[in-house]
């Protein structure tokens, strides 16, 4: 018998005493005791779960919002975008929410509209800040509209960028993406890869000459 187990009280002479003792015994046995050994076992189980989660993350179990390994198909965002206005669209996939913004000075910027904190929707707020801000209302996360960097709140990473281009007729097209904090040149080199050797050579991507040689060798 362990120290936590108490012997049953001796039966008293009167039935009332018996009943009280029985209630007391019930109450004591209803308390489920978690010992330190149990805690150690629980902690080991949690630790194993975290290790499995880490392997899953590294193996790519999470969806990287607004990312594409290869060059995505260009998509028309809108026919025209006036300064101070924004438009929501989906790019590169149909599940990837994105946002195109024309800043007051005419600059065209595009970002994934999925907050890097807990994946809430990011909104364009022209009335906030000097240039306007990208604002996540869930936990007051704020991103710089010009760079996508975090300026306030809990988001751990900048917003993934979306490269936009404007046609002479004023229509806005989304053509490529960049991951959080990834330089534009690296992002374009990664997505252009072997499929556009001319463009990679123009950009000066590492390995562009080799890729072009391989292309010539194949043809």
């Amino acid at each position: 018998m362990s120290v936590t187990e108490q012997p049953a009280p001796a039966p008293g002479p009167e039935p009332a005493g018996d009943e009280a003792a029985e209630r007391l015994r019930d109450r004591i046995s209803a308390d489920s005791l978690t010992t330190r050994r149990d805690y150690l076992r629980i902690v080991a189980t949690v630790s194993g779960g975290l290790a499995v989660g880490g392997v899953g993350v590294a193996a790519g179990i999470l969806h990287r919002h607004g990312d594409s390994e290869s060059m995505p198909e260009a998509r028309k965002v809108t026919d025209a975008l006036a300064p101070g206005e924004s438009v929501a669209f989906r790019f590169p996939g149909d599940e990837d929410r994105a946002l195109a913004v024309r800043l007051p000075d005419g600059t065209l910027v595009g970002y994934s509209a999925v907050c890097t904190h807990l994946a809430c929707a990011v909104l364009w707020r022209e009335d906030r800040g000097a240039d306007g801000e990208l604002y996540c209302p869930c936990h007051e996360g704020v991103f710089d509209a010009r760079t996508g960097e975090v300026t306030a709140g809990p988001p751990p990473r900048p917003l993934p960028r979306i490269f936009l281009t404007e046609q002479p007729d004023g229509s806005v097209w989304a053509i490529a993406t960049a991951r959080s904090g990834e330089p534009a040149r690296e992002a374009l080199c990664r997505q252009l890869g072997d499929s556009h050797p001319e463009m990679t050579r123009q950009l000066g991507c590492p390995g562009a000459g080799r890729a072009a040689a391989n292309q010539r060798g194949r043809t």
Binding site: A44, G48, A51, G54, V55, V57, A58, L62, R64, P156
Partner: peptide, 30 residues
Amino acid sequence: LTVAVNEWMEGNTGTAWWGAGFLILSFLVV
């Protein structure tokens, strides 16, 4: 785990695998 998620989301898959290795080693310690 938070570091590994951040690194993987930024595209640094190699660093995320290092994080996974650290998590497994820690589990072995426990």
